[in-house]
């Protein structure tokens, strides 16, 4: 994809009416995944814009995974784990914190909107927080529109 294609205003005019954001959530098995489960069990409604990917620990999320996700066409990535101090593996999320403090800044630096890569601590008991975060992020991404930056040409059909 050329630069012009990526930033072409005509291309954004083609955003279909029924476009929905596609958000990838990395959820730690011990906190956020259980929190998402509780959200469902509690019948709390949240937008169906998220794809939840379970990881053993938020520390498992390699920056490569995030860039690859943008390549393959997600509009935002959300990395979620246990609150600092609550990690099942004691310290995994402290490494996550350092890594994504840096990575968020780097992605913002190369021109990605900061809303498109976020990280949150959501515990297994925080069903309302999960609902609220997903709603919030979905609204932000809906306002921004589809992401074209970093996207590989072969996955350009965002509404497929």
């Amino acid at each position: 994809m050329s630069v012009n294609e990526a930033l072409d205003p005509k291309a954004s005019a083609q955003t279909p009416e029924d476009w929905q954001p596609k958000i990838l959530v990395f959820a730690c098995n011990w906190c956020t995944y259980a929190g998402a489960d509780l959200t469902g069990l509690s019948r709390l409604q949240y937008p169906a814009t998220v794809r939840i990917l379970r990881v053993p620990c938020s520390g498992r999320v390699n920056p490569q995974f995030v860039i690859k996700a943008f390549q393959k066409g997600v509009d935002a990535v959300l990395v979620c784990g246990c609150h600092p101090g609550d990690c099942h593996y004691t310290t995994g999320n402290y490494y996550t914190r350092r890594r994504f403090l840096l990575m968020r800044r780097l992605m913002e630096y190369i021109g990605l909107e900061p809303e498109r890569l976020q990280a949150r601590w959501i515990s297994a008991a925080e069903a309302p927080k999960f609902q609220q975060v997903i709603t919030e992020v979905t609204e932000q991404i809906r306002a921004l529109g589809p992401n074209r930056k970093l996207r590989d040409v072969q996955w350009q059909q965002w509404n497929s």
Partner: peptide
Amino acid sequence: NLSENMFFALTRALHVA
């Protein structure tokens, strides 16, 4: 292509971070 090149550049930058 640009996407792959950026993947390389960013991944390498983060590997040597």
